[in-house]
């Protein structure tokens, strides 16, 4: 498949008065058109930062280097006006906490139609009809009545459906979902995931799903990028996730998922804390200090080694077939 989004050698720093945060340290990733890609990592791994860099929605103190190719254009070279014409029309974004990311004083209807109005795609009247139609598709009952209601009159799950409708109304080629279910109940979570999957298939759009939840990523996506300390540790197709993961970090993550059956045993966990992004990075492997399989060669930082087609691992062990 042709790549829709291709990020090359991306590095991002946040400059604050106290320190420089090395949020992203050389990330390469590819999203095929119509594909579903998950970016998985713990808090502070830079997973959201990477994806917010694509529509250039990072705060003003971010220093971004690298290339972000979207549909044949390097987004890094576009001016603000060209960039604005992509946002909302070709790239849609869903955020983690719909209550905070919706304006509390405007009706959801007013907010949903905005992408169409900003890009002069439809008249206000047509936009309203499309919005009502879309609200119906994302599973909001009585969409005509709800159109004129305010965010505080909805539950969190409903608001996330509203957010999805808002991101999709201009039919973008790429949908970035930044932890869209983290703030929701588990049952609501499952409904939203199913809805996202269904809409992605129906519309043939590409989906980037940012999450800390490996299980959710496996359920929804075709391939997974695992991030740690602002770098990609492993990239592999979902079917190989459980059995063929090669990186000690990913292996640790998978093992720390509690099994639903079998005897109750203490869960294995990864010792130590995530690497600090405010201090200079170590010269060697950034996971080395927490790694049980550390070797002398880990003093040197491993590149992403091609293990298989569609499967890269940033670990010296990969050359020997990965962690046992």
């Amino acid at each position: 498949m042709t790549p829709l989004l291709q990020i090359k050698d991306l590095s991002i720093q946040f400059r604050t008065d106290e320190a420089t945060v090395n949020a992203i340290n050389g990330v390469n990733l590819t999203v095929p058109a119509g594909g579903a890609v998950a970016i998985v990592g713990e808090s502070g791994s830079g997973k959201s930062t990477v994806m917010m860099a694509a529509p250039r929605l990072l705060p003003g103190n971010a220093v971004v280097h690298g290339e972000i190719w979207f549909d044949g254009r390097d987004l890094m070279t576009l001016n603000e006006k060209q960039m604005r014409s992509l946002r909302g029309r070709e790239i849609g974004v869903i955020f983690q906490n719909p209550t905070a990311y919706l304006n509390p004083t405007k009706t959801i209807g007013q907010q949903i139609v905005e992408p169409l109005l900003y890009h002069h795609i439809a008249s206000a009247k047509r936009a309203k009809e499309e919005a009502i139609d879309l609200l119906d598709q994302v599973g909001i009952g009585d969409p005509r009545g709800r159109f004129d209601m305010y965010p505080f009159e909805f539950s969190g799950g409903m608001l996330q459906r509203v957010m999805i409708a808002m991101a999709l109304i201009a039919s973008p080629k790429l949908l970035i979902a930044d932890e869209p279910t983290t703030a929701l109940d588990v049952t609501v979570q499952a409904e939203i995931l199913m809805l996202l999957k269904k809409l992605q298939r129906e519309r043939g759009m590409a989906l980037v799903f940012v999450t800390h939840d490996l299980a959710v990523a496996a359920q929804l996506c075709d391939e997974v990028y695992v991030m740690y300390g602002g770098m990609v540790m492993e990239h592999l197709p979902v079917p190989q996730l459980v059995r063929a993961s090669k990186h000690p970090y990913l292996r640790g993550l998978i093992q720390s998922i509690p099994p639903l059956d079998g005897p109750v045993e203490p869960l294995p966990y990864i010792p130590g804390n995530p690497i600090s992004t405010t201090r200079p990075l170590p010269a060697g492997c950034i996971f080395a200090e927490r790694c049980a399989a550390k070797m002398s060669v880990c003093e040197k930082r491993p590149p992403l080694i091609d293990f298989d087609q569609q499967h890269q691992v940033a670990c010296w062990l990969a050359e020997k077939g990965g962690i046992a």
């Binding site: 529509p55 929605l57 604005r84 014409s85 992509l86 946002r87 909302g88 029309r89 849609g92 974004v93 955020f95 906490n97 905070a100 990311y101 919706l102 304006n103 509390p104 907010q111 905005e114 992408p115 900003y118 890009h119 957010m163 808002m166 991101a167 201009a170």
Partner: peptide
């Protein structure tokens, strides 16, 4: 600087919007 402003920009709105 509030979060819903990020949404406005993500929808393609400019400073005026």
């Amino acid at each position: 600087n509030s979060e819903y402003m990020v949404t406005v920009y993500a929808k393609g709105g400019g400073l005026r919007a």
